[in-house]
Design a protein around this nucleic acid. Sequence first.
RNA 1: GGGAGCAUAGCUCAGUUGGUUUAGAGCAUCUGCCUUACAAGCAGAGGGUCCGCGGUUCGAACCCGUGUGCUCCCA
Length: 921
Amino acid sequence: MELSKNYIPSVTEARWYKHWTEKGYFKSRPDERPPYTVVIPPPNVTGVLHMGHTLNETVQDILVRKARMSGFNACWVPGSDHASIATEAKVVQMLKEKGIDKNELSREEFLKYAFEWKDKYGDIIYNQIEKLGCSVDWERVTFTMDDHYYKSVIKVFIDLYNKGLIYRGARMINWDPAAKTALSDEEVEFKDIIGKLYYLNYILVDDEGQLKESTPNSVNSQNAAFNFITIATQRPETIMGDTAICVNPNDERYKHLKGKFAIVPLINRRIPIIFDEYVDPVFGTGALKVTPAHDINDYNLGLKHHLEVVDTLNPDGTLSAAAQIYIGEDRFVARKKIIAELQEKGFLINEEEYASRLGHSQRSGAVVEPRISTQWFVKMKELARPALNAVVDGEIRIHPGDKFLATYKYWLENVKDWCISRQLWWGQQIPAWYDEKGNYVVAETYEAAIEKYKEKFGQQLTDNDQLKQDADVLDTWFSSWLWPMEVFKGISDPENHDINYYYPTSVLVTGQDIIFFWVARMIMAGMHYRNEKPFSDVYFTGMVRDKLGRKMSKSLGNSPDLLQLIDKYGADAVRFGIMISSPAGNDLLFDEASLEQGRNFNNKLWNALKLVKMWEGRTSTDNTTQEVDDNWRLTDETKLQTGEIEDLAEVEKSRSHHIAIDWFENRLNEVRAEVEVMYSQFKLSEALKSIYSLIWDDFCSWYLEWVKPGFEQRIEEEVYDKTVWFFEELLQMLHPFMPFISEEIYHLLREREDDLCVKQFPKIEAADQNILAAGELLKQVISALRDARNKNQLKPKETIKLHVQSANGSIYKNIEEILAKQINAEKIYHVNDAVPNAIVIAVEKDKFYIECENQIDTESLKNELLKDLQHQKNFLQTVIKKLGNERFVANAKAEIVELEKKKQADAEARIKTIEETLASL
RNA sequence: GGGAGCAUAGCUCAGUUGGUUUAGAGCAUCUGCCUUACAAGCAGAGGGUCCGCGGUUCGAACCCGUGUGCUCCCA
């Protein structure tokens, strides 16, 4: 079979994904194996997968594939989220472009458009998940608005309401004037701004001071007929909502104002001066205007002092009739006009810059208004306690823990009630039913509501129109917090087989930005409804940034298109690129260069395949070592004794191949163990690096070169078989990270029935440290000799004669063949004395002499050796100093002292070698 | 304002209970190679005041204090 020059991902990827799904490898049904369950953090249906998702899905796929290959019944549930606010905004926008006004549609008509939208974008997302190679169970796709899901959300709402954990009430909430809905505290993002502090004069009047017709509604600084109190405010446009001025009771400046009143500029409302320690006398003028309808702190003050609440804003952010002036104008426009008027009329006496933070809606970006509004809330305190304990007690482990544990704890310990109603249509409609007077009952259906109403209010309703359902829907997170349960129908059918088998799930992989929105609340819901954690481990990935460290955003245009990347580099390379630069929990700086590295790695694997395939038909069975037996690793000496082989010289020739095989097998075991530890610590990037290096450096650069037969030469069958086997093992290790190419090469290496995708990992054998050390020494010697060739300008094609002077010459005799091949030596001699007129190299205790025709630059050789000598002597010095320190010898552990002694001996031996080498020059 | 985290090679990061041959990797850089798997490659090299200062210790990249700089969360 002819293999292409380079690996071409596009063809193989589609073919293998189809094969895997046809074979049903990703399908999971409960069985006797232990489950490994992962639920996808549902991407919302508003868009396409961005690089953050790509990282996230890749991490999950690696964990799931690894589990599937390690004896677990792996189940990865895909799905998507209806994303109430975001989707509704997009649908409204889409309708607008079609010339349709949402307000002219009925709820049902609007939802029809929304579901069309969902089908379109849901499919785009699923297509991308597939292209990326994600091994999700496609028969378990769940959407948060699916019928069973919808019903379970309603069921939970009713249940929590009946338990008194959900209530309805008028509270200060965050209002999004663009989306015209309430938001939860978590949906508000604060941004630093440079605002202004405006100093305003309010005219003071006595308590009986009814405003007379003649009272001016302007003051001039020259006009001294009035007394004033000066307040400082950031929001002069809210003065029409002022219902008091508050000062600190201990503030001497204002003590005389007890019982006095002030007049709100422009609208002439008379408001009391109140006293409360809440006010900081140092801030501004020490006098605070109180606007209960538009500030949470003012609202609390208002409750305490029984102040009137005047809401001067409409839901869309324009001024309401209650504002009396600039009615219907946008809050920001009105603000400018009010400032101008205040200035003109002399009320504004000063303004200064002021650093502040302004709340923005996470979804619409609009500046959020604090607003009194009647909404539905979840009482969080009671739900929070078990969720806190689950993490604090270590039942749920967070990775990386040190970073997020404190954040998690703080939030739960200071949790506030959760506003869950949204003034939208896209979502689960709140199951509350009202009569004309506003009395309500909570029930699943209209019929049930009628019954409930009768019970609660003792009234028989005769006419169907008498109860109306709440028009609002629930916060999307109020549905997502049930995700790990309801994807297995754990809420709608709590005792079913699936939920009992798959729950709790194994690991949740998600972004750290939704720790409160989602993670904490899922734990609450899980603890409440199943009395069991929803997952054992939480793995937080970092944020994907561009290579300059900037957040990826549409406006910067620095967010690449996933499908284009896959087209250009292949899915494996994308997965490789994003994982190799993704240290656990840290932000990753995305650079296409790492995808290129992934593509190059594909190619390296491909070429290794080509090399091995070249040997396929060239195996030789004409050798004493042809029989591969279980004891093939026994030393030849042992075999001699047992009579298995009769003559050592006979096997000498293949000896070096055995060393290569021996070494690589142990190296494989060593890395397998390392990778296993990294998996358990979620250090996936590190694991990939280890596998990458094992394949590229150890397998391709060293092992394959060591066993490579000469031009037109045959390869021993045992060596060939072992090589193919090693290759397979490497592909298996790589498979969770790069599933497509590993499967492809696995099948090209050898005709076979099975698939790598579900091949089970072997038991990890311990690595023999002595063999590993021998391999390292060989590599070290080869590198040193190649370096010497380089430095002495020996062309790669020029052959050399190598003389080895070692007290332990047999070591080098055994690896002579490899050594000669690797440094292009035509002949290797073993000597007992220095060889004159040669390039000398000292490695550990051994000396090497390169005999060649070039003029030898003794001077630079000498310098090189002197430099090394100095280094060794300095090192020896520090060791001797340490050992000479009585307190070190007395206090340090015995093995540490022993180690230092060994260091000393080794350094002394190296120094001796170098000195002898120098003497021979 | 409160809290958390980080600072190691040009860049991105490892570095285990403080002792692992006077600090490692990948990428980038430099040198030499079109060597019959691979130039998307091969061989080799250079590169560090472990942020500054002080302390604990026989011994500190690691522990403590402090300063500086960056990032994030919360009000």
